[in-house]
């Protein structure tokens, strides 16, 4: 059964052969939160998000989304979430509009809901008339914007966004951040990963530092900065690593 907590992870371990990617990760995300996972490359951010997106199976531990178990109830979870992979590709020979329309028809039954979702996504993407062009003609930033629009147009209870602003220029990155905030104000929740500490500081309501497969600090951005007496999250992260 679903409950009010959006994400609940306890003692999550993920091993790939002899490599331990996650070693006892625990955190939770509540309704209306934008939760940021911060850490260097190879820290375990993407693995955590992939487990939440039902793409990978945990080796051990307890992982629930809206009360549903990621292993046993994966199909129910897939109806409530949307996932944006860091390197998500696009279908080269479809137009942006066709792609959004196909995805909308997978999620919504009524024609009206589909049309509304596609219109909303087209607006979110900010691609204008280019939305009618084949996606092979899009720049990296345009592809990213269409994927962000795709991920949020389905109004997921939980949006799992791996580096949502990767490859975007400063204007479009800001545009995407605004969309993420609006998604949360409309009742959604978000868990995202990012290398950009500044982005996390301004966007996330709560965050966790992850390093070598372990959560080493969790809290609100201001709380974390105050705790270590630093002016930004980057300094806080380095301070945590030192201790």
């Amino acid at each position: 059964m679903a409950d009010e907590r959006i994400v609940e992870i306890k003692g999550l371990v993920k091993q790939f052969g002899g490599l331990t990617a996650l070693n006892g990760v625990s955190f939770s995300v509540d309704e209306g939160e934008i939760f940021g996972l911060i850490g260097p490359n190879g820290a375990g951010k993407t693995t955590t998000l992939r487990i939440l997106a039902t793409l990978l199976l945990p080796t051990s531990g307890y992982v629930r989304i809206l009360g549903y178990d990621v292993v046993k109830e994966a199909s129910k979870i897939r109806e409530l979430i949307s996932y944006l992979a860091e390197d998500a590709g696009t279908y080269r020979n479809l137009t942006g509009y066709e792609y959004l329309s196909i995805v909308a028809r997978i999620y919504f039954k009524s024609k009206r809901d589909v049309e509304e979702a596609v219109e909303e996504a087209a607006r979110i993407s900010g691609l204008g008339d280019r939305i009618m062009d084949k996606m092979k003609t899009y720049s990296r930033g345009m592809k990213r914007r269409i994927q962000v629009a795709r991920a949020l147009m389905t109004r997921p209870k939980l949006a799992i966004l791996d580096e949502p602003t990767a490859g975007l220029d400063v204007f479009h990155a800001q545009h995407v951040r605004d969309i993420i905030k609006r998604h949360v104000s409309n009742g959604g929740s978000v868990i995202l990963s990012s290398h950009n500490m500044l982005e996390v500081e301004h966007l996330c309501t709560r965050l966790a530092f992850i390093h070598r497969g372990r959560i080493i600090m969790e809290g609100e951005p201001q709380e974390v900065k105050d705790l270590y007496g630093v002016s930004n999250l980057e300094e806080a992260f380095l301070e945590v690593l030192k201790r």
Binding site: S75, S82, A85, G89, T90, Y91
Partner: peptide, 11 residues
Amino acid sequence: EKTLETLLTFP
């Protein structure tokens, strides 16, 4: 093209 991963998260 890394589209399968996204496809597998659809309901």
